[in-house]
Computed example of a mutant assay.
Amino acid sequence: LQQRAFEEKIIQIEKGFIDLLENIQGIDTNLVAGEQKSRNQLIQRIKQEYNRKILMGETLAEGMDSPKFSNYENYNGKTTSLDDLQGQYVYIDIWATWCKPCKAEIPFLKKLEEKYLEKKITFVSISVDSGKDHNIWKEMVAEKELPGIQLFADNDWNSEFIKNYLVNSIPRFILIDPGGKIISADAPRPSQGEIITILLNQLEI
């Protein structure tokens, strides 16, 4: 939706809710107050998400230079930067050990990596776990035998790379081309199967 149309829709929703309450007789005032608060919170979240999508379209569009991460700790105890991966397509998984939807993607991600093992694409997983969970991250990488390049973000959710990509929920997948340009700032998940496969095949990796 264009911004004006979006704002008109929000006004319609708010007016419809008010009209509904005004036409119900004898409704409990505490219930009304609670529902109004919930409605206001929901509308606020919808507005925030809409504005985030607009900003993504302006700053993270296909073909734009990708934000970079530098010297993230990798599982081997050394560091990896996005610039180290120049010349390869890069498929990034932003996740955390406590995130159930993230862990649900692991089997699909493994299969995807196996499928493109000999191709010009690098799979990178960036954990946004807090520093206190560093050991949990290392243990899970080992326990689940996670392939690809496993990285630990330098400041969890406050890492510049995470903020620059406007990440507000995980898992989040990002696809970058060999020249460091954005292909998709919100790429399909591995569990979407054919959708991500079609996208990668179109790139003739």
Rank of each mutant, 00 (worst) to 15 (best):
45 R>E: 14
17 F>N: 01
64 M>D: 03
18 I>N: 13
68 K>M: 08
37 K>D: 04
84 D>V: 04
64 M>P: 03
43 I>M: 01
34 G>R: 00
15 K>Q: 14
40 N>P: 05
67 P>C: 08
33 A>C: 09
47 K>G: 14
28 D>W: 02
70 S>L: 12
81 S>A: 07
39 R>F: 00
48 Q>Y: 03
31 L>A: 07
43 I>S: 01
15 K>A: 15
74 N>E: 11
55 L>R: 13
73 E>M: 11
45 R>T: 14
64 M>A: 08
51 N>H: 14
69 F>T: 07
40 N>C: 05
84 D>P: 05
27 I>M: 02
71 N>W: 03
62 E>N: 14
25 Q>K: 11
82 L>N: 06
80 T>N: 04
62 E>L: 12
56 M>S: 05
24 I>D: 04
77 G>M: 12
61 A>F: 10
30 N>G: 15
85 L>K: 02
39 R>N: 06
58 E>H: 10
58 E>C: 10
44 Q>H: 07
60 L>Y: 00
70 S>G: 04
46 I>M: 12
86 Q>H: 09
42 L>K: 00
18 I>P: 03
45 R>N: 06
70 S>W: 01
59 T>N: 12
34 G>D: 05
45 R>P: 03
25 Q>E: 14
64 M>L: 15
77 G>N: 10
59 T>W: 02
65 D>I: 06
22 E>M: 07
87 G>V: 08
32 V>G: 09
78 K>M: 11
16 G>K: 02
34 G>K: 02
42 L>P: 01
75 Y>V: 15
76 N>W: 11
20 L>G: 09
77 G>H: 07
33 A>S: 14
65 D>V: 10
37 K>L: 07
46 I>N: 06
62 E>I: 04
